[in-house]
Amino acid sequence: MQRDIAAREEMDSPDADPLLLERTYAQFPLVNRCVSGWRGMYLRLVRPALPRHRTATILDIGCGGGDIALALLRWAQADGYGVRVTGIDPDARAHGFASRAGAAAGFGPAELEFRRAVSSDLVAEGRLYDVVVSNHVLHHLDPPALAGIFADSRLLARSLAIHSDIRRRRSALLLFGTATLPLAGSSYIRRDGLTSIRRSFTREELARVLPPGWHAHAAGLYRNLAIWHGENPAGR
């Protein structure tokens, strides 16, 4: 199955139906809990990279509705870390939903910030974070934007950068399509999810586009990880 780079996700359109889009953001936490594997990545990779001697900082690039940023914040706080999480997304609709979700969860600006921004904005500001992550962002990007997010991540991350994305397989289309049938018509989850699978990379394809110093890992059957380890473990 060839990568379908011409396919477009409906929720990315400026004309996306506002109600369907709102429902899509609201359904992301359930879908990501089932398919994204961030709890395991937090335990194996993110947590060991967080410093104990000061407030740890995490950046979520392309944060969408903010559920991954919120989950990372909750897990780190439960493990006793002082932590501040920043989520960025250039889409005003995603930023609005994430900001409302963060406020509803009771987190203040000292713990959680959502910004309408792209990674190059933060590079220009000279920002640094202990850990930089993204979830299901890479397959959206054209080659210049893909190179940009990897370059920006190295400049923004002190210790670790992880970009997690879908791994393209025929069986993923069948399984995801079947599992999300109950959501069909209620949001963009099913239609855009199938488009995302068709746009996504195999592990070998991802490895070919990674710059030096990055490594492509197949996490299970249906996820790819692009990982960069900095020279400053645990923020020291």
Rank of each mutant, 00 (worst) to 15 (best):
G106M: 06
V123S: 12
R199C: 10
E111A: 13
N135H: 15
L174I: 12
H163F: 05
G177D: 15
S200K: 01
G96W: 04
A110E: 13
D142E: 13
L112R: 02
A103H: 14
G185N: 09
L155P: 05
L128Y: 05
L194P: 02
T178A: 15
L183H: 03
R199T: 05
R154T: 11
R169P: 04
S200P: 01
L122E: 01
H136M: 05
R168F: 04
A147R: 12
P143N: 00
L155K: 15
A105R: 14
F114D: 02
L175T: 10
L128G: 06
T180P: 00
I189Q: 00
I149F: 02
E204N: 13
E204Q: 14
L122H: 01
R167P: 12
H140V: 06
R208Y: 02
R154F: 04
A184Q: 12
Y188R: 06
F107T: 11
H136P: 07
D165C: 10
A157H: 09
R115A: 11
L112S: 00
A207M: 08
A94Y: 01
R208V: 03
A184G: 08
S187Y: 11
S120T: 13
A172F: 09
F107S: 09
L175N: 08
D130K: 04
A161N: 07
R158I: 04
L173F: 12
V131F: 14
V118R: 13
D192I: 03
F150T: 02
G193W: 00
R154C: 06
D192H: 03
I189F: 02
I197K: 00
S120H: 14
A101T: 00
F176D: 06
A98M: 05
A147M: 11
R199I: 05
L160N: 00
V209T: 15
S153L: 03
F114G: 02
R168T: 11
L181H: 08
R170A: 09
R167S: 15
A101L: 02
P182E: 06
A161K: 01
R198G: 05
